[in-house]
Design a binder for these strands. Structure first.
Lengths: 258, 258
DNA sequence: CATGGAATG
DNA sequence: CATTTCATG
């Protein structure tokens, strides 16, 4: 059971760069896409469906902005679009697919880089999201795999230049603490579980100044699993040579339920 | 003395498609450009200057919109930027270079295709322009060569489909009458002077539906010369195989003053 | 259909 | 630096 999270920076753009060929070779069971950037017309997902996927979408209200989609080979037993709070759902950030023994929560967290107002919005979102996840657990949702672009990371080894970014959106003390607390609520960072303290593994590089070629990046894309699923984590990693976007895909491999 | 009028649909775009190479081969004495689409920063014209041209510009106020520029090998004895009426000059439509024995008036006339309001604005402009040219003549300006994108034409043989466009902006009865009156004021259409009633010669083709390959076009770009210059018109034509834009260049060749 | 800008990342 | 939509032609 392979689950991939991939911020595609425009699904149409990624498709034009060969996303389908990659998908056909990779064959994930579940693929969580962020920043699909749907327009006013619904996206044409026939190519994805032709590869055997059921496609669920949560586009933003604003054309060309944000939006998530989840693809799955197996039919989910329930699909939940959005999180029930308008100010977030208008931006198309959350999509949950429940399966028998786990649930995949696809999330695109806000970026704080465009303005202090958006950074404040992001921090509010983070606290909302933590509460929201607790509510899902209390409501009996199957154990969660949270797959998405978190737009933040926790540890110094999660970005190339931690010193210069102590107060940059995505690595503020507040966000780092939030991430720590979130994990302490009962989640495992599948990448660190498999790779320990391995440095230099990133999932996003700015397009500017040849950053990707120099591996000047951040690990912003995460697959967090409920601790009850931790024994099933058979593999995890980043597919840094996949280049349809300024992000690369992140994956987790789950062994069958025992 | 070769004078060219060319609506480049974005000077940066045209430069990226090899405008300099063409210019170097063509070597006009004066080149009138329309729709330069300057941004907020001044356009980089160093490549044009390196070919030995003095470059004069009249950009629009709005970045990326309209704007004209005139290039000349010889220094003009006077340069007049704009026409002195704000509502037109904010759109960067007029630039005059006076030489000893003639004057080159570079003009980009408004398009009426985007709305009825803009068509009304265009018709007002046409009447203003006719008066303006009369005033120039009365003020002792040297005999005019009016070079530009007129965004209209007069005769049925100036567009591929006159029947279907009887009321289209650019070929309304009002505009056709205006054109006739304008010529009657003392101007010669250099193209018709040389080519008579030759059909199928156009200077603009919509980018849509492969119109240029099928020569479904309009002759919108004109070099009108003061009738006193008519004896000097040694050649005129359209360079339809020059493809930096949805327009092609139009030229007139003047023999030396006798 | 193409340009150049804007907002967003 | 790249994506998308927008106004304009």
């Amino acid at each position: 059971m392979k689950i991939i999270s991939y911020n595609v920076n425009g699904l149409r753009s990624a498709l034009s760069k060969g996303l389908l060929d990659w998908l056909q070779a990779e064959v994930p069971d579940v693929l969580c896409l962020q920043e699909i950037k749907a327009g006013r017309e619904p996206l044409d997902v026939s190519g994805l469906e032709a590869l055997g996927y059921h496609v669920y979408q949560h586009p933003a209200q604003k054309p060309g902005y944000s939006g998530v989609a989840t693809l799955t080979r197996q039919l989910p037993r329930h699909v939940e679009v959005g999180c029930g709070t308008d100010c977030y759902d208008l931006e198309g950030r959350v999509l949950r697919l429940d399966f028998d023994d786990f649930s995949v929560l696809n999330v695109y967290m806000p970026s704080g880089t465009s303005s202090p107002e958006r950074q404040a919005f992001k921090v509010e979102w983070l606290h909302f999201f933590r509460r929201y996840v607790r509510e899902l657990q209390a409501a009996g949702t199957p154990p969660l795999v949270i797959a998405g672009d978190f737009n933040c990371c926790q540890r110094e080894l999660d970005l190339h230049n931690p010193k210069a970014n102590q107060n940059s959106p995505g690595f503020t003390p507040e966000e780092r603490q939030w991430f720590k607390d979130f994990l302490a609520d009962g989640f495992t960072d599948s990448f660190r579980h498999i790779h320990g303290d391995a440095p230099g593994h990133y999932s996003w590089w700015t397009y500017r100044a040849g950053a990707r070629a120099r591996n000047v990046g951040w690990r912003l894309d995460h697959l967090l699993v409920d601790n009850t699923l931790q024994p099933r984590v058979a593999g995890a990693g980043l597919l840094a040579d996949v280049v349809h976007s300024d992000h690369c895909p992140a994956y987790v491999q789950l062994s069958a339920a025992s």
